[in-house]
Write a protein that binds this DNA or RNA. Structure first.
Lengths: 230, 230
DNA sequence: GCAAAAGTGTTCAGGCTACACCCATGA
DNA sequence: TCATGGGTGTAGCCTGAACACTTTTGC
């Protein structure tokens, strides 16, 4: 029963490419690295790798993420499969893209160096190999939709964050300025944040209160038919 | 340069599976067929096929669609890649799902018979092979989002359709009843439909006016910053 | 003439947008 | 004391939701 049923069909290399997004200084960043193997050695590329036998697509993506971050269970979601015949210049490779939203501070700088990896502002992404620029474009469109309807943006921030930080994150995602009062009013009305007593004094003299996303509260509200929307 | 760069990596069978949706009698239907080859011969399945060398993923999906419909250029969009290690009982196969929205009347019944294919109401879909039920579930979630923000629903109707038809289509997609007056008001305000003089008298004595979707008008409005929303 | 589906407006509430000033603090 | 970013409330508008009766016509 484990016999070769599909003998007459063709097999393909299948890889995953990870669009790892972070947020810093009011800007979204993506993790890129310089390829250290042919073809196109020395060119900039997304983090990726081939799927191994015995490994699901998601497991492969997860492995790539862990390898370059040292962190398990990062937020991650499939973008889609890319399979143009000539997309890879080496041989034919079908690739499945995943995007991941991470807190840049959690990344070990030495591990990044080891992988030739660098955080790059989205506004300064160079020409990447193959269809990797397209994958980023598709991811950003998806992120806009997703962040508007699900509380995924918090993955891009430290556990404790301020409202000005959160707002500038959403401004970066939507690529549009938001009204401070309206933004805060909306968040307040959702009642999914915990206000701390502590303040962040790094970016202003007065200091801004820290908040935390309360997942338990959010899940409870979901059950009651609540929908996140920002 | 066409040398074997990735010699040490594993290759996989890659297939496409098509979730072909039609609309009839106030119900969404999906095209299923009885597998005529092992493994799981005789079981119900989505329409699908292996990707051939020299063929992109989209081309493979398009080929499968044309093969069973006799129609080119059907509306089609990728749902995602499915790659659990044990998803296929024969051998390991990674599959990319595409959904397609079609006008059931355009399908040649004899061609369907040839392929062992049958239209099945969504409410009556049996247990399918592998993860095909999951693919349908994912497609329906995607369709809800898509149909709300893009005028893709028209692909499920004949070129000429009535407003009661269109409303029942959206009721089927959203799985919820809609208010007749509000629905018509919204459509009217978008100004993307052409009202014909002709009436459809099949479903009532009085008859309902036929309308057509005006793609040119829609595209013009898009340029002016208009967003479809239903 | 009656059954069955098509067609038509108004009202109300809630959410979204626009908008400007005071507060706290470090330098 | 002043420069800098943090924090707060209201009013108008618009959109979405609720809702009931008349029209047409085949039988």
């Amino acid at each position: 029963m484990t016999a070769a049923f599909y003998q007459n069909e063709v097999k393909f290399f299948v890889s995953v490419d990870c669009i790892i997004l972070g947020f810093n200084n009011s800007e979204l960043n993506v993790l890129l690295y310089k390829r250290n193997f042919e073809p196109l050695q020395g060119q900039w590329s997304l983090m990726g790798g081939f799927i191994k036998s015995g490994e699901s697509i998601g497991e492969a993506a997860s492995r790539v993420l862990t390898e370059c971050s040292g962190i398990d269970n990062l937020f991650m979601e499939q973008v889609g499969a890319y399979g143009d015949v000539t997309r890879d210049l080496g041989e034919r490779v079908i690739s499945v893209a995943y995007y991941s939203l991470v807190n840049m501070n959690d990344f070990n700088p030495e591990l990044l160096k080891e992988h030739n990896a660098e955080w790059t502002k989205l506004s300064e992404v160079p020409d990447l190999i193959f269809d990797h620029n397209q994958m980023i474009t598709d991811t950003l469109a998806r992120l806009k939709r997703k962040a508007a309807t699900r509380p995924v943006g918090f993955n891009l921030l430290p556990e404790k964050f301020t409202l000005p930080q959160l707002q500038s994150l959403y401004e970066a995602i939507y690529q549009t300025p938001l009204d401070k009062r309206n933004f805060r009013k909306k968040l307040n009305s959702m009642d999914i944040l915990e206000k701390l007593d502590e303040k962040d004094k790094k970016s202003s003299k007065r200091g801004a209160f820290y908040y935390m996303f309360n997942k338990e509260k959010y899940d409870r509200l979901l059950d009651q038919g609540f929908y996140f929307s920002l």
